[in-house]
Design a protein around this nucleic acid. Structure first.
Lengths: 194, 194
DNA sequence: ACAAAATGAATGATCATTCATTCACTACTC
DNA sequence: GAGTAGTGAATGAATGATCATTCATTTTGT
C-alpha cells in the first residue's frame, strides 16, 4: 500500500460524508469506517479532526484555483477574462458536486468562521485566488468598462448568482447545459458592465 | 408575567445564540439560561428542540414576507416592483442581522435539509413569499422586459447577489448606505433586463 | 388547598480522543 | 535460509466530555 494512501482515503471519506450528510453525519468513527481504517488511525495522519477538516478545505481551494488558471492569461481582453472566471467557477462546481457541498458546509460552520478569523486578516489572502479577482476588478474599473463599486460588491454581483445557480443545479432544481451557462455568465456580465 | 412570555423569551434566546454562535453554540442548557428559565421549561412550550428551531424559522419567514408586502401592489410598474422586492430583501436583512444569520445557519444545516424535504415538495410553497416572485417573473417574461430564463435562474440572478452583499455587510466587510443599495438593486435589474 | 407551571439533577446517547496492545515488515545473526 | 529482535503503523476498547430529554419535586397563582 502506497505511503500516504490512508491519508488520501481519509480525506476522500471526509469529503464524501460531509458533502452528503453534513458535519453532523461525519463523526470520526464513520469517517474511519468509510475510509476502511480504524478510528485511531486518523490521529496518525492528522493532529485532530479540526486539522483534517481544514486541510481538506485548503486542498479544495487549491483545486479550484488550479482549474481557474487553466487557459487564463492577463493578455486576454477584459470581458473575455471575466467570462472565463465566471464560467470556470460555475463549471468547476457543477462537475464537482461533492466539493461544492463540502465547501458550502464548511463556510457556514464554526470551521468557516474560525478560518476567516485566522486567514482573512492578512488582506490579500495567502495563496488563494483572491488576487486574480482583485487584479481584474482594479483594471476593469480603471478602464471604465465596469461599474465603479467597491471590489467586495463587484465580487458579490459576479459570483453571488453563480453560487446560487450551482447549488440549484446540484440539488436538482435546474439542469444546466452549455447554452444556459453561457446565458448566466452573460447576465453576470450585464450586472457589472457600465 | 404574560401568558406566552416564556415562549417568546425562548424563541428570542434561540435566535440570538444560534445567530451569534451557530447551532453548536446553542445547546438547550444555554438557550434556557439565556432566556432566564430552566432547561426543562423548554419542553413545556415545544415538543423538542427541533420543533423550537423550526418554529423560529417559520416565524422569521413570515416576518420577511410581511415586510416585503408593505407598500407592494400588483398595480406598480414592473421594474418598480422588482426593485421594491430586491431592495426590500436587502434592507430587511441588513437591519435584522440576527435574523439573517439565523436563517443562513438554518439553510445550511440538517434542519434546512429536512425542511426542504418536507415543504418543497408542494411546488408552490405554502404560505411563503414564493408566489410573489413567481407572479412577477411570469409577467416580466410575458411582457418581454426580462430575459426568458427558467424562474429558478431568474431568482438566483436577482437574489444571489443580495444574499451575498447582505452577508458581507453584516460581517463588516462593507458598509452599505442608501446610495450603494440603490446601485446594487440597479445592477441586479441590469442582470435580468432584456 | 388545588392545579398548572417551573425546576434542575439524573439519565442515556453520542462523540472525539487516547493508549495499551497487536500486526507487518525489515534487518541482523548464525 | 531459518530464526529473532526491533520498529513504526494500525487497531479498537475505554475514557471523559457534551447534549437532549425526562420526571420527581417545588413553586406560583387563584
Amino acid at each position: 500500500m502506497a505511503k500516504d494512501d490512508k491519508r488520501e482515503l481519509l480525506l476522500q471519506a471526509t469529503l464524501e460524508l460531509v458533502a452528503k450528510q453534513g458535519f453532523h453525519g461525519a463523526p470520526c468513527a464513520a469517517i474511519a469506517e468509510h475510509a476502511g481504517v480504524a478510528a485511531g488511525t486518523i490521529y496518525r495522519y492528522f493532529d485532530n479532526k479540526d486539522v483534517l477538516i481544514n486541510e481538506l478545505y485548503l486542498t479544495l481551494e487549491q483545486k479550484i484555483t488550479t482549474a481557474l488558471l487553466e487557459g487564463y492569461t492577463l493578455e486576454m481582453p477584459f470581458r473575455e477574462r471575466f467570462l472565463h472566471l465566471v464560467k470556470g467557477v460555475l463549471k468547476f462546481f457543477i462537475t464537482s458536486p461533492l466539493e461544492f457541498k463540502y465547501m458550502e458546509q464548511f463556510h457556514h460552520s464554526p470551521y468557516g468562521v474560525a478560518f476567516r478569523r485566522d486567514h482573512m486578516l492578512g488582506q490579500t489572502e495567502s495563496g488563494g485566488s483572491c488576487s486574480i479577482y482583485s487584479e481584474l476588478f482594479t483594471q476593469g474599473v480603471a478602464q471604465q468598462v465596469i461599474k465603479d463599486l467597491p471590489h467586495v460588491l463587484l465580487f458579490d454581483l459576479a459570483f453571488g448568482p453563480i453560487i446560487s445557480v450551482a447549488r440549484n443545479h446540484i440539488l436538482g432544481f435546474i439542469q444546466l447545459d452549455e447554452t444556459l451557462i453561457e446565458q448566466i455568465a452573460e447576465a453576470c456580465w450585464d450586472s457589472l458592465k457600465r
